[in-house]
Amino acid sequence: MLPQAAQANDPTDSSRVRTAHRRIVFQFDNRYSILDGQLVGINGLKLAVEWRGRLRAGAGGYLLSNGIPSQEVVPFGYPSGTTAELRFRYAAAYVEYMFIRTNRWEMSAPLQLGGGRFFTSFEQPNGNKSKDAKSTVWLIEPSVSGHFRVFPWFGIGAGAGWRETLFVQSSLDEALDGPIFYGRVKLFLGDLYKTARFKRKLFSQQHFRYDQ
């Protein structure tokens, strides 16, 4: 093991490197939720700026991974055998405060404000498709999330929150309000690059050691 003075000057050890004032953060934000009483997957992409390792602000876009089979009766005028699926997509601005951040742990409180469209897609037996009128939806999503680094380049995380729609009809409130939750595996590409560049052991714990 290196002496403390040598560790402080060791360029391969990033545990004591100061966080940049600003950096760009890109994230796949895929989660699960309850919509219209059914468990669904929602795929998302987020881009943000992070300040001093504590605050992130940015925007993202989301859509259902698949349509939700509608529980409502198909409207009059469609032939027998017509199927109906609910569709939902939205964009959101968000801020995220990291109230715990160490080499191992990160806990944060994201808050999203967004707007989008909710509509029903119909498919007739002959393959013809159509949509009903789209409803504009406004929403707010508070949540709590965190991750644990198993290795410098690899971590596991989870999060949970609530989606609340605003300024919409009560029927949409019932269909769209609900919990959001996820579990995910995280790859920290910067640390993976450093592991390869400085020829560290892939499963080393050196990054997490502190001076005594």
Rank of each mutant, 00 (worst) to 15 (best):
E72H: 12
V73M: 09
V74F: 05
P75R: 07
F76C: 00
F76Y: 12
G77R: 01
Y78I: 07
Y78N: 09
Y78V: 12
P79G: 06
P79Q: 07
P79C: 03
P79K: 04
S80K: 14
S80I: 00
S80G: 13
G81T: 09
G81M: 10
T82V: 08
T82M: 09
A84M: 12
A84I: 12
E85Y: 10
L86Y: 10
L86I: 12
R87I: 00
F88L: 12
F88C: 02
R89I: 08
A91S: 11
A91Q: 12
A92I: 08
A93V: 15
A93K: 10
Y94M: 05
Y94S: 05
Y94F: 15
Y94D: 07
V95E: 00
V95S: 10
E96K: 10
E96P: 03
E96Y: 06
M98C: 03
M98G: 13
M98N: 12
F99N: 03
I100G: 00
R101F: 06
R101C: 07
T102L: 04
T102K: 07
T102D: 01
T102C: 09
R104C: 04
R104I: 09
R104P: 01
R104T: 11
W105L: 15
W105R: 06
E106W: 02
M107K: 01
M107I: 15
M107Y: 12
A109S: 10
P110G: 02
P110D: 03
L111E: 01
L111T: 05
L111W: 05
L113P: 06
G114E: 02
G114V: 02
G115K: 04
G116Q: 10
G116V: 10
R117S: 13
R117G: 10
R117T: 01
R117H: 11
F118M: 03
F118R: 06
F119R: 09
F119G: 00
F119Y: 15
T120W: 02
S121V: 12
F122G: 01
F122S: 00
F122R: 02
F122Q: 02
F122E: 00
E123H: 00
Q124M: 15
Q124K: 14
Q124N: 13
Q124S: 12
G127H: 05
N128T: 14
K129M: 11
D132H: 06
D132R: 05
K134P: 07
K134W: 06
S135N: 15
S135H: 14
S135F: 11
T136N: 13
T136G: 07
V137G: 03
W138A: 10
W138D: 05
W138G: 09
W138Y: 15
W138F: 15
I140R: 04
E141Q: 15
E141D: 04
E141G: 02
E141H: 03
P142Y: 04
P142T: 09
P142K: 04
V144A: 11
V144S: 01
S145W: 01
S145R: 15
S145T: 13
G146I: 11
G146P: 07
G146Q: 01
G146W: 05
H147Q: 14
H147N: 13
H147S: 07
H147M: 05
H147A: 04
R149Y: 08
